[in-house]
């Protein structure tokens, strides 16, 4: 048996050494980690806006592609642009504008909301006309494999492309995930996509939070539409 003093001294030394080791590692890796997190978000935004790289997603390529083509805008409730500033105020929303050769090629907004088993996170992209869907992706969710998790699949996501967000009167209707198939005779077929069979709740959740999120951006998007009209005249 060793003395209590020895035990305390030994434990202290081990703790200090381990603690030092940990903080040194954490500190030296922090920069790389935050770059990774940022790149991950950028990668998602680029892919929903239809940018694709022929080869692997290499870090510096993502970085340069993003810097060249994506414009981060902060908009508020009324739809006015506050400029590219970070803000924690919940009434301000980030929208990602993609540009190629000084022409706007689309907008992406973050979407999130409840699916069946947990919150689903993703991005939703809109064409420059601010009313046609350009794409949708999810980067995190907990849906059932084979059912709700089909939201990750190409067939489901491509159904959204080309759908309209607003009706002929110019008011927001969003895109609805229906149960089963969208019938071709449905007059509202432009606002509906085929559901995933067996995943009704996932579809319903998606419909709800997509509409909620779009509503937040609607003031800004409607301004874009008006501007577009004026330009085309």
């Amino acid at each position: 048996m060793r003395s209590d003093t020895y035990t305390i001294v030994f434990t202290t030394i081990v703790t200090v050494v381990l603690g030092l080791g940990l903080s040194v590692t954490a500190d030296s890796l922090r920069e790389r980690q935050s770059i990774n997190e940022e790149l991950d978000i950028k990668k998602n935004i680029l892919s929903v806006l239809g940018f694709s790289l022929s080869s692997e997603w290499e870090n510096d390529k993502i970085q340069s592609l993003y810097e060249q083509n994506i414009n981060e805008l902060i908009v508020d409730k009324t739809g006015s642009i506050l400029g590219p500033i970070e803000s924690s105020n919940s009434d301000k929303y980030t929208i990602y504008q993609s540009r190629e050769n000084d022409k706007v090629t689309g907008y992406a907004i973050p979407i999130a909301g409840k699916g069946l088993w947990g919150t689903m996170y993703g991005y939703f992209a809109i064409e420059p006309d601010a009313e046609t869907v350009k794409g949708i992706t999810f980067y995190r969710h907990k849906e059932t494999p084979g059912l709700g998790a089909e939201v990750d699949k190409e067939w489901f996501q491509s159904n959204f492309v080309g759908k309209k967000l607003i009706d002929t009167n110019g008011s927001l209707v969003s895109v609805e995930v229906v149960k089963g198939y969208v019938s071709s005779t449905d007059p509202k077929a432009m606002h509906k996509v085929d559901g995933i069979s067996g995943a009704t709740i996932t579809g319903k959740g998606l419909t709800t939070f997509l509409k909620n999120d779009l509503q937040k951006y609607e003031p800004y998007l409607s301004k874009v539409r008006k501007l577009n009209q004026i330009e085309s005249l």
Binding site: T25, A26, L29, R32, Q33, N36, D40
Partner: peptide, 9 residues
Amino acid sequence: QVLKAYMYD
């Protein structure tokens, strides 16, 4: 930490 820094995905 190492994995987060070098193999983020």
